Deep mutational scan, measured.
Amino acid sequence: KELVLVLYDYQEKSPRELTVKKGDILTLLNSTNKDWWKIEVNGRQGFVPAAYLKKL
């Protein structure tokens, strides 16, 4: 499993997105899109802007 660090808080703006908090370490599911990465948070899957995340 690949992990990502959340660099900035992000509030979901659609049902396909997820809310994340700065400092969270989460599972990366897909990073093929350069702008939006798919991650998992508490069993939910969704997208967060790639600029808000850093691969560990």
Rank of each mutant, 00 (worst) to 15 (best):
N30D: 15
G43Y: 06
W36Y: 11
K21N: 08
P49A: 03
T27G: 06
T32P: 04
D9F: 04
D24M: 14
N30K: 07
K1Y: 15
L29H: 07
D35K: 13
A50M: 05
K21Y: 15
K13G: 08
L26S: 08
L28K: 01
G43A: 06
T32I: 09
L7Q: 04
V4W: 04
K13T: 15
L18F: 10
R16T: 11
L26D: 01
L7P: 00
I39T: 09
W36R: 04
P15F: 10
G23K: 02
L56A: 04
W37R: 01
V6C: 07
L18S: 04
P15A: 10
V48G: 01
G46V: 06
I39Q: 00
I39Y: 00
K13R: 13
N42P: 08
P49R: 05
K21C: 09
V48D: 01
T19A: 06
K34R: 10
K38S: 09
W36S: 04
Y10E: 00
L5A: 06
V41N: 13
T27D: 06
Q45Y: 10
E2V: 12
L3I: 08
L5Q: 08
L5H: 04
G43I: 03
Y10T: 01
R44A: 09
G46T: 03
T27L: 14
K38I: 14
S31K: 07
K21W: 14
T27Y: 11
L3S: 08
T32F: 10
Y8S: 10
K38M: 14
A50F: 02
L7R: 05
W37M: 02
R16D: 12
E17F: 06
N42Y: 09
N30V: 08
Q45D: 09
S31A: 14
R16E: 12
R44M: 11
L3W: 15
L56T: 06
Y10S: 01
Y52S: 07
L53C: 06
L18R: 04
T32L: 10
N30L: 09
I25L: 08
Y52V: 12
A51G: 12
K38H: 13
L29Y: 05
V6I: 04
Q45H: 11
E12R: 14
K38V: 15
N33T: 07
Q11T: 15
L18T: 06
F47C: 09
Q11A: 11
Q45N: 10
I39G: 04
A51D: 09
I39P: 00
E17D: 06
A51I: 12
L5W: 06
W36Q: 04
V20Q: 00
L53N: 00
Q45A: 15
I25V: 12
K1L: 14
L7V: 07
L29S: 03
D24W: 15
R16H: 13
S31C: 10
L56S: 03
W37A: 02
L3K: 10
K21D: 04
T32N: 12
K13Y: 04
E40C: 11
K1S: 12
L28P: 00
R16S: 12
K22V: 06
K1V: 15
K55N: 07
G23P: 01
K13S: 11
L3F: 15
E40Y: 06
F47M: 09
K22W: 03
Q45C: 09
V6Q: 01
K21S: 10
A51P: 09
Y52T: 07
Q45G: 09
L53G: 01
D9K: 03
V20M: 05
G43C: 08
